[in-house]
Design a protein around this nucleic acid. Structure first.
Lengths: 230, 230
DNA sequence: GAGAAACCTTTCATTCACTGTAAGTGTTTT
DNA sequence: AAAACACTTACAGTGAATGAAAGGTTTCTC
């Protein structure tokens, strides 16, 4: 049975939605705490998130972005905001579907099932800017090609994808590679990083690993940015 | 550059659409012959089909179903029919997206890019009964897991998938594995077959490789069939 | 049911990609 | 220019994938 998490602050609406989904054969979890939504999602690990954009405490867009960045759960945005720019923004952030309230239940159900279907089997793919990475096998999909990354390169890339565009320290990378942050073999890490970089360059990936002197590394989009040199 | 096929009978509308897409960085092919649409699509092998439902000669729904069944090209339905039942029907037939005219170009572009994105890298997946096989890496997707098959096992499974449920001879398998049908090392083939079978059993795949005495092997669905023994 | 043909399984040595080590080269920063 | 940090290349050890070999099991025919 497919499992759906409903994120919606208006209790009545939420109940109605949840009931309707349950009557149609889904298991439903209602999320009523609007802090750390991404963490809650990760714990529940549903097959789909139904997300309202008007949330207390936090921005629905932000939540959408975070879920898409940090998990591989599909997000269906169901909202009363019917501005085109909201829709475009949500899609840009990675939303898998955008529907406006009020919405006929048949349409909602059809779209839910549509999204679920396209995610079948795809539960373990991490998204990069222009590529996908399989968490289990480290198979990398890019430009209509697929390549298997060696384990270490895969682990490193996975860590970067889990950190968005934040800085990743060497400790974190060592932890991911060898399970320990003590006795860091800086050089071994360095070599593996170099290998991954070479692989990424060879595949012409749009994202790059760049050093942040004294801090670690970051995964950035594009290279063309020379930021204030002289 | 992504490549889109536009299926729309109204010339003005089609031109406008095509121009707009071209201005936004797509290569576009306009389909004006409405017989054998699926065959045309197969020949063009675009990254996406933009499909109007009101076509002369043939039913747009039928075309949609056929494209989805016989190719692995995504279909975005763009139509002036705004009946909910049309939408539901199209989605049921496998349409990847359904938009109604008139449609703001920003929305259309966003949805086009959304659909294209979700198909990224998926061009090389072969479908089994309950699994997918990546032609290039031999990554196997089944039951929400993914596994990399050793090259030889992958090649063998690929051959079987390309033959449907027909019998595959040892010669064909040897050809696929070693590029030659002479000097067949029956034993090496045997060992590789055994290994693949063991892998498939371990993954609880619904399809099985069974010997056809004196002829070769077949990929069958399920095992429960004891066909007329006594 | 004996013998032959077809099919299957296990074990072992070889091979090759992946990995960490080592040693040395670049590049910033002070 | 020296120090700190970052990068590169070459090499040897390890382990998975592979084919060879040898032996076992099933199926068919007489």
């Amino acid at each position: 049975m497919k499992y759906i998490a409903v994120v919606e602050d208006e209790a009545l609406m939420r109940e109605e939605l949840a009931d309707m989904l349950r009557r149609n054969g889904y298991r439903v979890e209602e999320i009523c705490e609007f802090g750390q939504i991404t963490d809650q999602i990760r714990k529940l690990s549903p097959d789909l998130v139904l997300l309202d954009l008007n949330l207390p405490q936090t921005s629905g867009f932000q939540v959408c972005r975070e879920i898409k960045q940090k998990t591989s759960v599909p997000v269906l945005v169901l909202t009363s905001r019917d501005q085109l720019r909201d829709e475009l923004y949500a899609l840009e952030l990675g939303a898998d579907e955008y529907l406006t309230k009020p919405c006929r239940k048949e349409r909602l159900l059809a779209r839910v099932s549509n999204v679920l279907k396209r995610y079948e089997g795809r539960a373990n793919l991490l998204e990069g800017l222009d590529f996908l990475l399989d968490r289990q096998t480290y198979t990398l999909y890019i430009h209509n090609r697929s390549v298997i990354l060696p384990g270490n390169q895969g682990k490193i890339l996975e860590v970067f994808l889990n950190h968005g565009d934040q800085i990743v320290t060497k400790e974190v990378l060592c932890m991911a590679l060898w399970g320990t942050t003590e006795f860091i073999d800086e050089n071994a890490l360095q070599v593996n990083l170099t290998r991954l970089k070479k692989t990424m360059a060879g595949l012409e990936m749009r994202q790059q690993i760049v050093p942040v002197r004294g801090m670690g590394y970051r995964l950035t989009a594009e290279e063309g940015k020379d930021e204030a040199k002289g």
